[in-house]
Amino acid sequence: MGILDKEFTESNIIITKFDDLMNWARLSSLWQMTFGLACCAIEMMATSASHYDFDRFGVIPRPSPRQADIIIISGTVTLKMALRIKRLYEQMPEPKYVISMGSCATCGGPYWNHGYHVLKGIDRVIPVDVYVPGCPPRPEALLEGLLKLQEKIRNESHVKKQV
């Protein structure tokens, strides 16, 4: 499977499936919302910086939710913050994707037991596409999570009804 199903060499025409084209466009420019919560945000910053270079996957930070495609929940979500995150998520245009980065965002992490003010998993508030485990996950793990998300997008269908 690929975008180049059939190519006419002379005439600059490509024949491909609509789904493939749309998915290819979507997965290659996932604009990310600049949004850091806690420790994981530093690893997210390190991923965007020179050494790991998030940009090569088309992930460009955008400061506004209205221009973003993915939101990376990078860190501990507290009860005070949870409703704000929900609102940010609702402000993002469709299609939108969520990566839950780190143990805290996934299930409360080390704060699961005594954290009276910690939300035990962001999936109690918004739907999540990819969970990245780790405390904090290494930048490589976040990249892997992004690749998984791209794989998921690649298999989406716009014409067929989704199961």
């Binding site: 009860l79 003010h117 035990k120």
Partner: peptide, 20 residues
């Protein structure tokens, strides 16, 4: 007041479940 030794965690806060 959470740091009092006899503090009991509330069950829900604004519709979100607090304990694990």
């Amino acid at each position: 007041y959470p740091l009092r030794k006899d503090y009991k965690v509330q069950e829900f806060y604004q519709g979100m479940k607090v304990p694990y």
